[in-house]
Design a protein around this nucleic acid. Structure first.
Length: 155
DNA sequence: GCCAACGTTGGC
DNA sequence: GCCAACGTTGGC
């Protein structure tokens, strides 16, 4: 089965590529958007490549690489009463929200800013470069992944 | 902090 | 099922 590629957004105040480097792996929890949920639950597979994106950052951009180390499973935080991600609609029998686990791959020396992505040939159609693109988990093509990886290693 | 874009909610 | 109101995201 061909490896697929993704971009996952997180605010630096919540979690960074440096945190992932320290932890080795982390559970990607708290996604509460159906479109992103479907990707987590159905499409992300072990071994898929991930561009780690820092949103609401200075600058916002891709800060490194990760990979899927555990495919979709019910988001445990949805079951924790009192937790900020608690959702009574999600039950053990019929989970509503899903998580994956990602593992650390590489930390770029410098962030590849959104402005650079927008200006780079071959990334014009990348979802994150489109106006109003708010999806926190996005599909990325192999070629987009490779171009961004090269940018990250070149700096 | 501003504000545009988007998703969700809820009245009808 | 429409759509206005509202809340959230996220770049700047």
């Amino acid at each position: 089965m061909p490896r697929r590629f993704w971009l996952m957004k997180c605010e630096p105040e919540v979690y960074t590529i440096a945190d992932l480097e320290r932890d080795g792996a982390t559970t990607w929890e708290g996604v509460r958007n159906y479109q992103a949920r479907n990707l987590l639950r159905d499409d992300m597979k072990v071994g898929d490549g991930v561009l780690f994106y820092a949103s609401n950052a200075l600058p916002s951009g891709v800060t490194g690489l990760a990979k899927i180390v555990r495919a979709g499973f019910p988001d445990p935080t949805a079951w924790k009463e009192g937790h900020e991600y608690f959702d009574p609609a999600s039950t053990m029998a019929a989970p509503v929200w899903y998580s994956v686990e990602i593992g650390f791959v590489e930390r770029f020396a410098l962030t590849i800013p959104l402005a650079t992505l927008k200006a780079t040939r071959g990334l014009g159609k990348m979802m994150v470069t489109q106006k109003g693109s708010r999806l926190s988990v996005q599909p990325v093509t192999r070629s987009e992944y490779q171009i961004v990886t090269q940018l990250g290693r070149a700096t």
